[in-house]
Design a binder for these strands. Structure first.
Length: 270
DNA sequence: CGGTTATGGTCAT
DNA sequence: TGACCCTAACCGC
């Protein structure tokens, strides 16, 4: 379930479990075998996330492991070592804990220039303290592309995925097909601040929650059970169901190959 | 058991 | 725009 919050949480957890420790490194599946063997027995130095990209550094190794989870990759940390390998495990780290990487879009050793090249393609990441929202604004305010597409463009903004884009558009009542150049600057500033807070909550809880207290199902007299994807949201994957605010049926439409969800009644402004 | 789906991205056309 | 990559869960038969 990888949007940016997942990777930042993962970086934090990997450091807690492995930083400063000598680790075993292997590729049970074999597709990262040579690289994993090279790192075996070394000290894991750091794990850091930029948008949806994760970089793991080892002492005395100039290259870093670049991990991108893609649509359905997972990197799961569990206590203890020597667990049986279940399914396709691309990379396994072990110290006093274990971490299994499955189904990543990318798992590769990159040289420092190659790392810089990846980072250079990324827009500002709301989860990084030094991120500059003006860099994103510069791209947005001169673009004819719908804001719903711009939010997914990692070179405009890094870390936002299909859930956060739908939810932040709803929370700010923005019509998804509004061209970037039609979005008022004050609106963008508010969306950026909101994303910072929402994604930080995502890091802390390990799930995406976007519903304000006054709209929570319990407060609205509904079953307080979380949505199927694990968090509490306004529109994501709720097509056909009543809007939590106005009861209008939530709509769905494919935008740039991904399902976009929105409330046609609540979301009418630029 | 096979088809579908998924919070993503790249590359070719 | 479409093909393709990667893995697992879920659904209907």
């Amino acid at each position: 379930m990888p949007e940016g919050h997942t990777l930042h949480r993962l970086a934090r957890d990997l450091e807690a479990a492995f930083a400063g420790r000598r680790v075993r490194s292997a590729s049970p599946q074999g597709r990262f075998a040579a690289e994993a063997a090279r790192l075996d027995g070394r000290v894991l130095e750091s794990a850091e996330a930029f948008g949806k990209h994760l970089f793991v550094a080892f002492a005395d190794v100039p290259e870093q492991v670049h991990v991108h989870l893609g649509l359905y990759g997972s990197f799961v940390i569990s206590p203890g070592v020597g667990h049986p390998v279940v399914g396709q495990v691309r990379w396994r780290l072990e110290a006093q804990a274990s971490a299994d990487l499955r189904g990543p879009n990318a798992c590769e050793l990159l040289t420092p220039p190659e790392v810089d090249a990846v980072l250079g393609r990324l827009g500002p990441d709301p989860l990084r303290a030094d991120a500059d929202p003006d860099r994103a604004w510069h791209r947005i305010h001169r673009s004819q592309v719908p804001i719903a597409a711009l939010l997914m463009d990692q070179s405009v903004l890094a870390g936002v995925g299909n859930v956060y884009r739908a939810e932040v558009l709803f929370r700010h009542r923005v019509a998804p097909m509004t061209a970037g150049r039609r979005l008022p600057r004050v609106r963008w500033n508010a969306m950026w601040d909101d994303l910072r807070e929402l994604m930080q909550v995502g890091v802390e809880r390990g799930r995406i929650d976007t519903v304000r207290p006054e709209h929570e199902p319990e407060a609205m007299g509904r079953d307080p059970r979380a949505d199927d994807h694990g968090g509490e949201v306004y529109v994501y994957r709720r097509d056909g169901q009543p809007c939590l605010v106005c009861a209008t049926p939530i709509r769905r439409r494919l935008v740039a190959g991904r399902n976009l969800f929105w409330c046609p009644s609540c979301q009418q402004r630029g």
